[in-house]
Amino acid sequence: MGELAPADINWEPPACWYEPALSPQQLKAAVKGGDGGYVNPREWWSNRIFVDHYDKGIPQENFSAKDPVHSKWKGYKNYNLGKDGMFWRSVVRKGHESDDRAWDCGRIMFWQDAGTVPDDKNAPTPKVLASYAYDKIRVPDTEVELNPKARSTVNLPTWAWLDKGKFKDVKVRAELPGTGLWAETTAKPVGLHLEPGTKDAQLHPASGECAINDDGSIGTPYTKGQGDKTPPCGITYLRATSGKPYAMKASVTWEVSWEGSGGAKGDLPNGTFETTQDVNVQELQAVDR
């Protein structure tokens, strides 16, 4: 399985967002156990702030690198025990811990009543969850079927295809318990792009784009007697390999859409997943008599 690479290189899921972290009981138990924790994207705060701010009600400075002005946030009494809700905290997308955009979610851990979401531009929405789910999509590591399998021949077409059994929609669902927010992102395979690994080759079709068939397959499997025909998906190599095989690239395009709570839905950038296969090409010698 592998990750999708968005076709739009300028698009990526959000660097950070807010989500529920601890109930009043969980926070009190953690503090009693001597645990500290993160209260904003990068800063580890000792047990002291959890007692002072969340138990004794002492206001706490809130700092964001995007907004260097310190502001006071009022504290809480006895961890808000008896109230219905959760303490929310920022979450930074994996691999983006040092990304300055993570400071967009610079609020320290804060209270949110049950069934509500923060009035904040970085509050989770179905689209944010859909983007998060996109980041978790894993698609099959696809190996294209080729004929001839062992060695292609100069000026004779190599047929390429993918069976329908190898292509199925991939779905990933993301949800936030207690908020009613959810989104399901679906990646649907729509085509195959071939790159022969050498300029000395002809693609079939010329664009190298092999569309998906109605039954979910791509291309047509080779059958005996078709050697001199042009395949609907394939490559004709014009020069033999010499010790080193050609690195044929096969990229599957996945169309990505989503739907979520409240009837929300939309599209996300297409994704691609690329594999490389070695292709050896021989040249047959004809003898004149």
Rank of each mutant, 00 (worst) to 15 (best):
Pro232Val: 14
Ala250Ser: 09
Trp159Pro: 04
Glu175His: 14
Asp278Gly: 07
Glu283Gly: 15
Arg239Phe: 13
Gln226Thr: 10
Gln202Val: 03
Leu176Trp: 01
Pro196Phe: 03
Gly208Thr: 00
Glu184Asn: 04
Gly266Arg: 11
Gly178Val: 07
Pro269Thr: 07
Val172Leu: 11
Asp228Thr: 15
Pro269Met: 14
Thr275Ser: 04
Thr241Gly: 08
Gly180Ser: 10
Val190Gly: 01
Arg151Trp: 04
Val256Lys: 11
Asp200Arg: 13
Trp182Ile: 03
Lys188His: 15
Pro189Ile: 05
Trp161Asp: 05
Ala174Gly: 10
Trp161Cys: 08
Ile218Ser: 05
Leu203Ser: 03
Lys265Val: 01
Ala211Tyr: 05
Lys188Ser: 12
Ala201His: 01
Pro269Gln: 08
Phe273Ala: 15
Gly266Asp: 13
Lys164Ala: 12
Pro177Glu: 11
Leu181His: 06
His193Lys: 10
Gln277Lys: 10
Asn270Ile: 06
Pro231Leu: 01
Gly178Lys: 09
Thr272Gly: 10
His204Ile: 02
Phe167Ile: 07
Ala286Tyr: 12
Trp254Met: 04
Pro205Val: 01
Pro231Trp: 04
Gln277Ser: 02
Ala240Pro: 09
Val154Leu: 12
Val190Leu: 14
Ser242Asn: 15
Gln277Asp: 08
Gly234Ile: 08
Pro231Gly: 06
Gly165Tyr: 15
Lys265Ala: 02
Thr223Gly: 08
Lys188Glu: 12
Val190Arg: 08
Ser251Trp: 01
Thr185Glu: 11
Gly243Trp: 05
Gln277Trp: 00
Phe273Trp: 10
Leu192Ser: 10
Arg151Pro: 09
Val172Gln: 11
Thr198Phe: 02
Asp288Arg: 12
Gly234Gln: 04
Ser207Glu: 08
Thr153Asp: 09
Gly234Trp: 05
Thr276Phe: 03
Lys171Val: 05
Thr179Asp: 02
Val279Phe: 00
Phe273Arg: 11
Leu203Glu: 01
Lys168Met: 13
Asp288Phe: 06
Gly266Met: 12
Trp254Ala: 07
Gly197Asn: 07
Ala250Gln: 03
Gly208Lys: 05
Cys210Tyr: 03
Trp182Gln: 15
Trp161Val: 14
Thr153Lys: 14
Asn270Met: 15
Tyr237Phe: 15
Pro157Cys: 13
Leu194Asp: 13
Tyr222Gln: 06
Asn270Tyr: 04
Asn270Glu: 13
Trp159Cys: 13
Arg239Leu: 14
Thr236Ala: 05
Ala160Val: 04
Gly243Ala: 11
Val281Glu: 00
Gly243Arg: 10
Gln226Tyr: 00
Pro221Gln: 07
Ser152Phe: 14
Arg173Asp: 02
Gln226Cys: 01
Arg173Leu: 00
Leu181Phe: 04
Ala187Ile: 08
Asp169Ser: 11
Thr185Gln: 03
Thr223Gln: 13
Asp228Met: 02
Val154Lys: 12
Ala174Asn: 12
Gln277Phe: 05
Glu175Ile: 04
Asp214Gly: 15
Thr253His: 04
Phe167His: 14
